[in-house]
Design a protein around this nucleic acid. Sequence first.
DNA 1: AACCTGACGTA
DNA 2: CGTACGTCAGGTTG
Length: 966
Amino acid sequence: MSADIQAPSSAAANETLLVVDGHSLAFRAFFALPVDNFSTSEGQATNAVWGFASMLAQVIDTEKPDRLGVAFDVKGGTFRNTMLPQYKGTREAAPEELLTQLPLIQRMLEALGVTYIEKPGYEGDDIIATLASMGDKAGYRTLVLSGDRDAFQLVNDNVTVLYPGHHFKDLKHMTPQAIMEKYKVTPAQYPDLAALRGETTDNIPGVPGVGDGFAAKWINQYGSLDGICEHADEIGGKKGEALRANIEQVKLNRKVNALVRDVELGVSLDDLGFGAVDIAQVDALFKELEFGSRTKTRVLKTFNTGSSGSSGTQAISKTSPASSASETESVEAEEGVAALQPPHVEHIATAEQFETWVGEHRPQINVPREIAEFKPGDYSEQADRGISCGTAVSHAWTVHAWGDVRPGRVKTQALAVAVAQSAVIIESPVDDALKQSLAAFFAAEHGKTIVYGYKELLHALGGIGLDLPLPMFDAKLAGYLIQPDFHADDLNQAVEHFLDIHGEDTQQPAQGTFDFGDEPAAADADEQRAHDLAVVQALTAHFRPMIDEREQYWLMKAIELPVSRVLHDMERTGAKVDVSRLTAMRDQFAEDARFAQEEAWRHAGAEINLQSPKQLQKVLFEDMGLKPTKRTKSGSYTTNAAALQSLYIKSFDNEQANGFLGALLRHRETNKLKQIVQTLIDSINMKDGRIHTTFEQTVAATGRLSSVDPNLQNIPNRNAAGREIRGVFVPGEGYEALMSCDYSQVELRIMADLSGDEALIEAFRSGADFHKYVASMVYKLPVDQITNDQRTHVKAMSYGLAYGLSTYGLAQQLKIAPREAEALKNRYFETFGKVHDYLESLVSSAREKGYTETIFGRRRYFPALRSLNRVARDAAERAALNAPIQGSAADIMKIAMVRADQALHEAGVRSRIILQIHDELVVEIAPGEGEQVTELVRNAMEHAVDLAVPLDVSCGMGADWQLAAH
DNA sequence: AACCTGACGTA
DNA sequence: CGTACGTCAGGTTG
């Protein structure tokens, strides 16, 4: 190795230079912290500013740099965009709420005496590269803080990239060794690897199917990207093919990801000292941002000491500055969050011990009566939807349980009750006296408990014969209301995501399963349980102000919690199936499928796997030479039913292909049905011959339920053969029929109500054939002159509205010309002008506020509405159009379920709800209750909510689900 | 073994 | 180039 000819320009031995990617850090901060907790009274978001300060302070405290520079991108394209127009298309889709914070971050840096640099035409990355090279040459130990992997090319013995992991705290020090270890290439080779792999976050495609592994393999084989290009022909297999097909893209990627290291910045490293804080400016800015004094003290502690380094100061702790929630408890709520404080736990086994503990720990402050004794049931406009549980949560009992909570196979392991810093754990089995004591306690303390997952808890408690009346707060439901498109699989994930606390190896078995095999040592188990309890408390403290601020407590207390209870009952009850009919169907479908398969094989001349799209593509488009129609998103030719159908029609002169396609289509259908039936058979509970699905209450982003294990919400219903499967769902022992009630056109009725469109409202009030009536209005013809086609077209248009259907899509569905579809749409909106305005307003208000809202205040956030990527933005617009409509329908059905369940209980009947399929309820009918129950359920559904139009419910009853259709 | 994709069932 | 889901089977990845 030759000596460096250029002598260091300044004596920088042992000094550290920290170069920060400002945008990357701001992004990170923005997405790490809930914007709702960090905004000023005027609505200016401050989460990114606060997070930026916190994170930067944290790095300064650990790394103690002597020089510091922050680089930013400048608005407007760079030379890279000219080469690659989609460059950073996804990344620049910064939400407005973040963009408005960038100037604030820069003002803060100025106030703190930190130099930041931006340069038109260049990216922050190039500035970083330049600064890093300068530091390297001058002999600094140079650190680059960036979440952009392109920075890895800068790494050498003097330059280390600090790359944030899942949690910002665990910054990875990317040294040459670390890069080598992770990617198996040198830092200098890294851009070659990145070019091959692509960068999804920057919207840069690489070679499909090639990841880090293969890219590294080739680089090591041929030395570099140039080497690979020269020998591209020698690389075999699918990946070789893919490489050759995309080689131009890769070369372009490589040009774009090369960082410029000699940007004329007009600053020298000597300008990058820091520590000259302008106190007055910091005061003014922090006051404006409504940051608390604690934040200011911590920030100043780090930055005031400046280049001299701070002696072991802590990073700013996670405290919310000026939470936008009411001031009564801003600190209290967050206190428990910074570090979990697991309660002290003791094991008890007798009623006496439990009662003693309760007596000693009964909270001093009582829960407001109207909350503790809240009873759902009033869903009228007059109901007080502004209720809140306030700070009462901190005085409530936490109830939690562990074990297998899958309906039909519940195995309860233990339960616990905690309050403040004390908890008791009770292992299963529970002694009778203690059980009674617990039952009395739960009954007496109804409405004063907090839980994580009421439905699951009911299963666990039910496993030992206990019940828990409606809790005050459910942290799992709260998390869902706060962020419905995030789904945590277990407590740990919830805590990591919402509280940004990463547990130190506090791994617990996945919820819902319970491993009898290797039970953890008792002490570990207790520690884990105490931790879980602390997590439930901390999440509750975290969510409660947010729920109150959004006025969503009523949603939780009056809708979600009662629905949890109904769902629990439905899951526990399950749906009875006729096993012999099921197996007979399976055998019949299997035979049909096998027959179709053999015929297909005969025509193909080979025993290919008909269930493999890949093999089908080869046979159809290569061997038989058929003309492919559409492509899949990954670029291969689709073999879906629509494509096969059109190929089938077009291939009448080709006997082989036609025969094959016909057989293939039949095989597809029958095999699918066989598979559905088999899945049902596999999920029958041996003990009661019933199927116990699990209804997921916190999965669907719009507020709908979903059904898993098995999914009973997608049992075929559209064609006769499939519909037969519904016939296997029958009443169980002691029941005589199944009844099904469903809403007609709920979503359209919601649109009529919310838009206030008189014409559409009139169409519903008329009580006539709705679609025909609408068609007569659209075409300005008497109802009796409307043709079937016209009705079908208008019906498709009506339904398409709520999905954001394009005229192109409409045309395709109706097999009409796009021009005709366009004309239909125009006529439709001429007739229903307010519907048009309403749909437009949905999207524009979502763009403004960042979220949509259902009738009952359920929110969904849509950051992608501000995306610069048209595809992403258009998709978000359609989703934002649909969310409040689908979501309001879901709210209405949930209310209907609670009302129906209540009505059935109050009437003292044995009939019970067993299934919900979005707009349909299935009820198992006890002998002689048919008529009465039908009216109860119909009434509950029809009057779930008062709209400007009536809610129409149609009901049917029969000896099985199919026969209950109407 | 864990993940992804294509296909397809429902509202 | 229509929203929201869950499941299976095949195929690839580590």
